[in-house]
Design a protein around this nucleic acid. Sequence first.
DNA 1: GACAAATGATACTATGATTGTATCATTATG
DNA 2: CATAATGATACAATCATAGTATCATTTGTC
Lengths: 143, 143
Amino acid sequence: MKLITRNTDYALRAICFIAESGKEVVSVSSLFEALGVPRPFLRKILQILHNHGVLKSWRGKSGGFSLLRGPKTIFLWDIMRIFQGRFCLNECFLRKRLCPNIKKCILRGKINRIEKYVFSELKEITIDCLLGHSKIKKIVIRR
Amino acid sequence: MKLITRNTDYALRAICFIAESGKEVVSVSSLFEALGVPRPFLRKILQILHNHGVLKSWRGKSGGFSLLRGPKTIFLWDIMRIFQGRFCLNECFLRKRLCPNIKKCILRGKINRIEKYVFSELKEITIDCLLGHSKIKKIVIRR
DNA sequence: GACAAATGATACTATGATTGTATCATTATG
DNA sequence: CATAATGATACAATCATAGTATCATTTGTC
């Protein structure tokens, strides 16, 4: 079980790369070469990020994508929400129906406590947290 | 994303029911009636629990399953391991290969910290924790 | 001993989410 | 006006989870 799915992961790699590239606009081509993420999949992911107001896009020749906001104001949590929907560690179903015991369930309470902690930790993480911040502007593929 | 999958969930329900039933041996039939879990699936789950030394089984007419150990010595963690394998919130893959950046990855470190906490919380939970412990021995369907 | 009711073992199927591909339309640059 | 980029969107593959089916074996009861 993964906390972060592949598309969120790829999105993060792409955003970090754009943030660290120092360029105004980064094309799918250069992202593809740098990250090794499947090209059409990467494209789709970038378009979704654009549609959700994370990236700015530039169409036409020498077009590409750039960040709409600074790395300190882009949160991992938001990216996860975009690709993974509502976060929930509990799935209280019994044969596709809500479990009839949901109110009394002791385990549910315990999982919810854990979930709360995980939430709060994840919510702290920004793209800026994930960058290398090395003085030498070396491009590094990172998650 | 679920912390606990359906089969683990059903296994827990079954174990709790057996623990609370007060009977020596509980058949799949009675578990099925009480829990509403798909019968053949339930059977499979119980057999797996038996093979992993969680349940004792009694073959032949009026057979069934019983707990091999007391509820205080059966851990949620063990049941999860049986059905969900090794617990891991990180999946550091890039196109089916281990991500080349795995050592420097900052996100990885953060997820691992969260994982550690989740581990430690889950490891505390025993079947006994999940039981109702009401004086009146009322059978309740619970997770 | 025959039958019925239980589990043992195991192979198969269905479903759904994730992951990825393909294609055509549109836009901007040189 | 050709080319290289994104926009939109439908389609396909893969995989894990969830669930089913079947035959063999064991045991209690009449």
